[in-house]
Amino acid sequence: MTVSIDHDPFRLYPANTVFPISGLDLKVSPGDHPWYLAERERAAENWRKEVAANPALFDGKMVFQHRLALQDGIIRGEAYMVPFSTFLWWRRQERPSGGLHLFCYPVPVSSDGAIIAVRMGERTANPGQVYCPAGSLDASDVVDGVCDVLGNMVREVREETGLDLRQADDDGRYFACHQERRMMVCRVFRFRQSADELLAAIERHMVEDEEQEIAGAIAIRSADPDAHPYNPTMPPLLSWFFGGGT
């Protein structure tokens, strides 16, 4: 069975519902994304405003989906590389269309059952928001024209927190959740250290981190959606995790 998010957002699974998937096949095509071609002038104008407000922003290339479908439990995608400025302009739309954003959420979990999340720094595109250490797929995550989702997770967590997901217990299962043309893919990594130990390790990393992407780390122990200024993608994940979804 194939369900397309382009026309009907995964009808089998309501929005904001975490569901299991059996794999991913996310291809990146050469050339330009149609939405980039149609909106590049407006995106460039918006970028000038974004940088004026936050000069630390960087207009690197990222993976932006053109089509996504769920086929026999596998999320299949067709994407193009676009400037980050294109994505920011897309994100500014009241009802984004013309593209889809698939991003990866590694979920670090301490030995005492807390999710380890980060609060983003003021120099980032999501200042003050709290969510799992993560970032959009970029050029370094594309291998032979296909996105390396696990590689993205390992890299992003290492860069932001200094933690190494390869040292955590991992059963290899992927889950997904969609919200208005956004698709979150998550995977749980269980560390042998306590939350306090992991937070202390992240604090040491922050002292040495020149990028200063994060403003701090947080141990989340409940599904309360108001406990922190969460990114909108977090409450469904927390509800699922603390509701025994894993």
Rank of each mutant, 00 (worst) to 15 (best):
M1W: 12
S4L: 14
H7Q: 13
H7K: 14
P9K: 00
F10T: 07
R11I: 15
T17A: 10
F19N: 02
P20R: 00
I21M: 00
G23C: 10
L24P: 00
D25A: 09
L26K: 00
S29Q: 11
S29K: 09
P30A: 12
H33E: 09
P34H: 06
A38V: 14
R42T: 15
A43M: 11
A44R: 10
E45C: 08
K49L: 14
A52T: 13
A53Y: 09
A53V: 10
N54W: 10
A56D: 15
L57A: 05
M62E: 05
M62W: 01
F64L: 15
Q65W: 08
H66A: 05
A69D: 05
L70R: 02
L70K: 02
Q71I: 10
Q71R: 14
D72T: 03
D72Y: 01
D72R: 01
G73I: 03
I75S: 00
A79G: 11
F84Q: 10
F84S: 11
S85L: 05
S85D: 01
S85Q: 04
F87Y: 14
E94H: 07
P96W: 09
P96L: 11
S97I: 13
G99F: 10
L100F: 14
L100A: 12
L100K: 04
H101N: 11
V107F: 06
V107S: 04
V107R: 00
P108R: 00
S111L: 04
D112T: 12
G113D: 03
G113F: 01
I116M: 10
M120D: 03
E122H: 12
R123L: 15
T124Q: 09
T124K: 05
T124S: 15
A125R: 02
Q129K: 11
P133A: 13
A134Q: 06
A134T: 13
G135M: 04
G135Q: 01
A139Q: 10
A139V: 14
D141P: 05
D141F: 01
D141G: 06
G145H: 06
V146W: 01
V149L: 04
L150G: 00
L150F: 05
G151H: 02
M153R: 02
V154R: 05
V157L: 08
R158I: 08
E159D: 15
T161R: 05
G162A: 12
G162S: 11
L163A: 09
L163G: 08
L163F: 09
D164P: 09
L165T: 10
L165N: 12
L165Y: 10
R166F: 07
D169A: 14
G172K: 07
F175W: 11
A176T: 09
R182W: 05
M183C: 15
M184I: 06
F189L: 05
F189I: 04
F189S: 04
R190T: 14
Q193E: 15
L199V: 02
L199D: 03
A200K: 12
E203M: 03
E203A: 12
H205C: 10
D209I: 03
E213V: 07
A215V: 02
G216K: 03
A217R: 01
A219C: 13
P225H: 11
D226V: 02
D226R: 03
A227K: 03
H228F: 15
H228N: 04
H228T: 01
P229E: 01
Y230K: 03
Y230L: 07
Y230A: 07
P232C: 06
P235H: 04
P235Y: 01
P236Y: 01
P236I: 02
L237N: 02
L238G: 08
W240K: 01
W240F: 13
T246M: 06
T246F: 06
